[in-house]
């Protein structure tokens, strides 16, 4: 296994050793400066478009009036009654089963008494 890993290391090192590059710091800095200048040129346009979008959205929402507020108030008024209903359901389950048990046992006992 070690031989294979060494083989892979050798091939990668040989391939890498063949590569000659000619990147230079000043050239990259110049390109970065040009890119930044382009971004600065576009930035006001992008900002204006974003502001316009926000204004249009706000106006659109304001034009609909107070309708979106109403659904938000509804759950507040309806929320308090819901917790008791949940607790009632959980507490009523054992009583329902106990009733079922008593009603099933009652006819059998009457049948026995009838046969007798």
């Amino acid at each position: 296994m070690a031989d294979v890993e060494e083989e892979l290391r050798r091939v990668l090192a040989e391939r890498a050793a063949d590569v000659r590059s000619s990147l230079s710091g000043p050239a990259i800095r110049a390109r970065a400066a040009a890119r930044r200048a382009a971004v600065r040129r576009i930035a006001p346009l992008v900002t204006a478009a974003a502001v316009l979008l926000v204004v249009v959205t706000a106006l659109g929402l304001a034009g609909r009036g107070t309708a979106p507020v109403e659904p938000a108030t509804r759950p507040v008024t309806t929320a308090p009654p819901t917790p008791p209903s949940v607790t009632e359901r959980t507490t009523s389950r054992p009583t329902v089963t106990s009733r079922w048990l008593t009603t099933t046992t009652a006819p059998t006992s009457s049948r026995f008494s009838g046969r007798r």
Partner: peptide, 28 residues
């Protein structure tokens, strides 16, 4: 220091990128 970094490491970085991409042009 950026120029110095590029001068010192660009060869190693491009070689690493060649091994990843398989192409010198893509790597550069």
């Amino acid at each position: 220091s950026f120029d110095e970094f590029v001068h010192e490491h660009q060869q190693g970085l491009v070689r690493y990128a060649v091994l990843l991409s398989g192409s010198r042009a893509d790597a550069e």
